[in-house]
Design a protein around this nucleic acid. Structure first.
Lengths: 242, 242
DNA sequence: GTCTATACACCGATAGAC
DNA sequence: GTCTATCGGTGTATAGAC
């Protein structure tokens, strides 16, 4: 499935063989195509545009990719593997072990927000493919979103049995939290990129969303002092509002 | 802006004049076009398809709408006005007056979820237009989402001054809640229509999300009994999980 | 390996008959 | 009002020269 050997490095240097110009050119076409597809959609982008922006003739595009669809698949295929959530959850292992709910949720939010912020093109492309019912979106859903949701459900269920969390269907809690985070990204990269409503750094967003999920917004004097470790005071938030 | 008189009735009967066939035909074209656009996108849909599905010749489409773009605009134009959030907030006036936070948030969630569930095509169309940066999405954003967000901010700020809610930036609270609701709809209509992860009725979703927003998920024995009026017990949730 | 030139189909839009 | 026929333009994909 993963045709490109090193999907993490953006511009791989010629490591072994000599005919690297072809592969390099191929990757450049993929990059350009991803940008254009993410902006105008699949049907809205012409192979002519892709060729021109990549600085090659249109025939070159069809040398590397037999059809336009194959080019599209190469992009999703390439990125779907790179964006794996597995190692992200692994990075949270220590917090999970401690049962530090705040660190777990906040860390997860950080990861997702960071991913969306630094790979806007791919996020938009995912939406496009979801809308057109592309099969490779299903793959991404199964492999990343579903996996993350199930991880969260398991973690939450464990914490409920430990008596730390209220007895609500774990999947609903997971969806509520993922919803806050994903919608926030959606607004930032798609709905309101100019931040006419609200502009807050990712770190603060992750912190506040976690706080809301864990303790809600109702002022209950008894609940406030229940902080796990570091006594965070999210009082004077730095928010730029227009 | 609102060219169609009665936007609520799906198939209006000839009420007064005699030349209703034209207007009726026009509305039918709009309906078909909306369905196809929402499924395949703007560039992905051909005028030929629209004509065929509507049971007319392609030329007829261009009689009613000079260009394909004009047809697209007519849809968004038509629906953007229909989906106004103003009256929805008005329906919550009584709950707002009482400061019944639970009723306010739950009612708002109900409205949004119901809207998305019964107008899936339009929801998808909105995403399409947002992705392609169509100017009429901006209109929808300004007129509906922004308005709703500002209403929520005002309400939350008022409740904070009344000492009922914690002192968090109101816009963040609003976004967190809208995020839960909108993401839930997004999953239902777009990401996972088969409900492979979670399938809960709108009423329950609205209730649980409100509960989470207000009280969080941490088990604090002191916070649990703080119920406003009706003592709801959301213990045995009916969730179908696969 | 890269380009120019082109085949072929389709799409949006129009003209004009009925 | 509705249709058939068709035009100009564009899109994907290919052939063949360099």
């Amino acid at each position: 499935m993963n045709r490109l050997a090193d999907s993490t490095k953006p511009d791989a240097a010629p490591n072994g063989g000599g005919r690297m110009a072809g592969e390099e050119r191929r990757q450049q076409i993929v990059r350009v195509a991803m940008r254009l597809f993410s902006q105008r959609g699949f049907s809205g982008t012409t192979t002519k545009e892709i060729a021109r922006e990549a600085g090659v003739s249109e025939a070159m595009v069809f040398k590397h990719f037999a059809t336009k669809e194959e080019l599209f698949n190469a992009i999703l295929d390439h990125k779907a593997c790179a964006g794996d959530m597995g190692h992200a959850c692994a990075a949270l292992a220590e917090a999970i072990e401690r049962g530090d709910d705040r660190a777990v949720f906040e860390g997860l939010a950080q990861t997702v927000l960071h991913f969306h912020e630094h790979d806007t093109d791919f996020a938009r492309l995912l939406l496009h493919s979801a809308l057109q019912g592309h099969e490779l979106f299903q793959m991404f859903w199964q492999r990343n979103v579903r996996e993350t949701a199930n991880f969260l459900r398991t973690y939450i269920a464990g914490r409920q049995q430990a008596g730390a969390l209220r007895d609500v269907e774990p999947m609903i809690i997971a969806r509520a939290f993922v919803g806050m985070v994903v919608y926030h990204s959606l607004v930032n990269v798609l709905f309101d990129p100019q931040r006419t409503l609200l502009d807050i750094p990712n770190e603060q967003a992750a912190r506040e969303f976690t706080e809301i999920l864990l303790h809600g917004v109702v002022k209950t004097p008894a609940a406030a002092p229940v902080k796990t470790k570091s006594s965070r005071k999210a009082k004077t938030v730095s928010v730029k509002r227009k």
